[in-house]
């Protein structure tokens, strides 16, 4: 853009010019830089990106608030579905912790005919010993509830809308945790959203799987 072009443009308020200068100082946070580096390292190694660390205090307030709502929603929903009684007395702020992990990308090779399995490196082992209630959203075309009933005995199809289906099941947590195995029949890009909750914490995760032959 030349100076001649500048003179033909509508002028900006002086304050806006100062604001533009201030905006030019914006940088990604140190945490974000570390995450990017870790994600690139994981991509180089053909692995999923590592989980994101806890947010800095500056942003923790609003995230924790939104997260707490979602967490309580998940706990209540799970409780209602399972007929579990939740004790809401006591210190609510310590009832459950909430974490949303960044998306992780995986690549998998599947055979031309038949199907392949991919293990989603979820963090269900971070919950205390016992079981966690899992909600998992998958592409509808996968027929997840049909193909996974064998190794996820309590699996239920909650609902489907458009090309996405929501499922619920229970899974062992803590040291008994197992990787989440997903069966893939054809090449493509698949997105999975998983929310698992125990009495102490709730974790949201997203996985993007690129399947090729």
């Amino acid at each position: 853009m030349s100076k001649d072009d500048e003179t033909k443009l509508p002028p900006l308020p002086e304050e806006a010019r100062f604001a533009i200068q201030a905006f030019r100082t914006e940088r990604p946070s140190t945490q974000a830089r570390f995450r990017i580096q870790a994600a690139l390292e994981a991509a180089e190694a053909g692995q999923s990106a590592p989980p994101r660390p806890a947010p800095p205090p500056k942003y923790a307030g609003w995230r924790a608030s939104a997260g707490l709502r979602v967490a309580m929603g998940a706990v209540l929903t799970g409780a209602l579905m399972l007929g579990v009684t939740v004790n809401l007395d006591g210190d609510d702020s310590q009832l459950i912790s909430h974490e949303s992990l960044p998306a992780r990308h995986l690549s998998v090779q599947i055979p031309e005919e038949g199907f392949g399995w991919v293990e989603l490196p979820w963090n269900i082992g971070d919950h205390p010993e016992g079981t966690a209630v899992v909600h998992m959203e998958t592409p509808a075309e996968m027929n997840f509830h049909e193909h996974h009933a064998e190794h996820l005995p309590a699996l239920q199809l909650v609902s489907c809308e458009a090309d996405r289906c929501l499922h619920q099941f229970e899974a062992p947590s803590g040291s008994a945790a197992q990787p989440l195995r997903v069966r893939i029949h054809k090449a493509g890009r698949y997105e999975f959203r998983v929310s698992h909750a125990s009495d102490e914490r709730q974790i949201n995760e997203r996985f993007v799987v690129d399947a090729g032959h």
Binding site: R69, V70, A71, M72, G73, A74, L76, T77, L166, S195
Partner: peptide, 8 residues
């Protein structure tokens, strides 16, 4: 599912 219950 999550937000519907949480709104309450």
């Amino acid at each position: 599912v999550l937000e519907g219950a949480s709104s309450v």
